[in-house]
């Protein structure tokens, strides 16, 4: 499977990854409408981590042994056997946040407005995930997992 790999040495902490992730997961897919009209606002599923000059964007690693999926009490979080993508089904999520406790990477966020977990879905409907396609400095790569 293909995975997103951050390159901290060229990450410019612009937060494009977060913005374009939110836009991609919006209803309108339009930057202005996403942030000015949509309620509740779609959350980015990627987080820019920053301290001084060090920055990179953190997203779900789609682990081979996903602790979040093992911990999920409703089966909302599961690893798709075929694609290897760790998928979250908001319809089955009860917002217990057990996945957040279990995730060792800190890649899952809470959507308080809907009381469900949100995480990177690798934009499987796109050829290249929105964060990677829109990164202005080549700081996110979409490569075959090693």
């Amino acid at each position: 499977m293909k995975m997103i790999y951050p390159r901290e040495e060229v990450c410019i902490a612009c937060r494009y990854c977060e913005i374009y992730c939110a836009i991609e997961h919006s209803r309108s897919k339009d930057p202005v409408k996403t942030f000015k009209m949509e309620s509740p606002q779609p959350l980015p599923r990627i987080t820019l981590m920053e301290e001084g000059a060090l920055s990179f964007s953190l997203q779900c690693r789609h682990c081979k042994e996903p602790d979040c999926a093992y911990a999920c009490i409703t089966g909302a979080m599961y690893k798709d056997k075929e694609s290897g993508v760790v998928i979250h089904d908001p319809n089955r999520c009860i917002g217990c946040w057990t996945c957040i406790l279990a995730c060792t990477k800190g890649s899952i966020r809470r959507d308080e407005s809907k009381r469900v977990a949100v995480k990177c879905d690798l934009c499987t409907h796109l050829e290249v995930p929105a964060c990677v396609a829109n990164c202005p400095n080549g700081a996110l790569l979409y490569l075959e997992a090693v």
Partner: peptide, 13 residues
């Protein structure tokens, strides 16, 4: 202001 989405990219850059 009609277009600004308060994303703060300008601040970071």
């Amino acid at each position: 202001e009609n277009r600004c989405i308060q994303c703060k990219v300008c601040i970071t850059q």
